[in-house]
């Protein structure tokens, strides 16, 4: 998710830069050829490993029967039954709800942590480079391993988080985080947010640094307090980036699998079964690839629809 933009760019050259090509008329066929040649390997790879797989997924989702061998897929009879059963299965809607909650909560929390951290290290401070590095440390840590650390910290008997919460008086009794369907999702959220916020910090920091200090000075002169400064100077400057960060984080959370699988594998009693985990369970636990594929197609269509609905917002802000 390297899409770090700066809102200044909006004012300058938009992506694609249709206007800015002074040398373009002189582009010879040979140059064109070179460009295509340079693009070809990536394109070929995408066709083979993305386009063909998507075709396979759709193909599989229309087949009746179980197989894991590609050459046998063509022999299975065609059917729409998988879509019938996916759409009729209450589990699908249950997973959708879990996915929506998981995504919304992660996005909200990650943006909040990202905003707070970015605001704190926005200004030039001695040693800022190191403070920034420390704040971004969770980024290079694999989600699966972060999860394992949180499993230990959230352990129902010896977990340090229970201890700290008891110490400060938030709870009286240890919470068995991953045992109770009420708290399992919170337990899974913690490592997810922990892994997700650094990117938000970074994106917001980039756009915050583009706000000239004079604006804040001017606001101060006008007598604006910290809250008013945030509302009238900071927020207008970062809101576009914040929306983009939310979309990027949201897509990432919606499709991620590591955190849930590494802890609860979807349990207890489906309390943490997101769509990504449901697809995995159907495919690699029950070995029902056609059902998993149909569920996947439905998921992709839903994600696509949400993105389309958001598109006008994005378009207004970025193009």
């Amino acid at each position: 998710m390297p899409v770090v933009t700066d809102d200044r760019r909006k004012a300058g050259t938009p992506t694609g830069r249709p206007g800015r090509s002074p040398w373009r008329p002189s582009l010879s066929t040979r140059n064109n050829l070179l460009s295509y040649m340079l693009l070809a390997p990536s394109l070929a790879m995408t066709l083979v490993f993305i386009a063909f797989p998507i075709y396979m997924i759709v193909n599989l989702s229309l087949r009746d029967g179980k197989t894991m061998i590609m050459s046998e897929v063509g022999d299975l009879p065609l059917t729409l039954g998988n879509y019938d059963s996916v759409l009729a299965d209450p589990d699908t809607w249950h997973s959708l709800r879990i996915s929506a909650m998981y995504t919304a909560a992660t996005v909200t929390a990650a943006i909040l942590v990202g905003l707070v951290t970015a605001l704190l290290i926005r200004r030039r401070l001695p040693g800022r480079r190191w403070l920034r590095t420390l704040i971004l440390i969770p980024w290079p840590i694999p989600g699966a391993i972060a999860t394992v650390a949180f499993v230990w910290m959230l352990d129902g008997t010896y977990g340090v988080i229970n201890y700290i919460l008891r110490m400060v008086g938030i709870i009286d009794q240890n919470v068995a985080w991953f045992f109770d369907p009420q708290t399992a999702l919170i337990g899974v959220l913690m490592p997810t947010v922990w892994s997700a916020y650094p990117l938000c910090t970074l994106m917001l920091l980039a756009s915050l640094q583009s706000v000239p200090d004079e604006l804040y000075e001017a606001a101060k002169v006008d007598g604006a307090g910290a809250i008013l400064q945030f509302r009238h100077v900071t927020w207008p400057a970062v809101q576009n980036t914040a929306v983009l960060a939310m979309i990027v984080t949201g897509l990432w959370t919606f499709t991620t699998f590591d955190f849930v699988y590494a802890i609860t594998r979807g349990g207890p009693d489906g309390a943490t079964q997101t769509l990504a985990v449901a697809i995995y369970n159907q495919a690699f636990r029950f070995f029902d690839l056609p059902h998993a594929s149909a569920l996947g197609v439905v998921t992709m269509v839903l994600a696509g629809l949400v993105l389309l609905a958001l598109f006008p917002v994005v378009r207004r802000r970025f193009f």
Binding site: F179, P181, P268, D269
Partner: peptide, 13 residues
């Protein structure tokens, strides 16, 4: 899988 889920439901609700 269904039996496991049902048992978890019994234990947690």
């Amino acid at each position: 899988q269904h039996i496991i889920d049902a048992m978890m439901r019994l234990l947690t609700t």
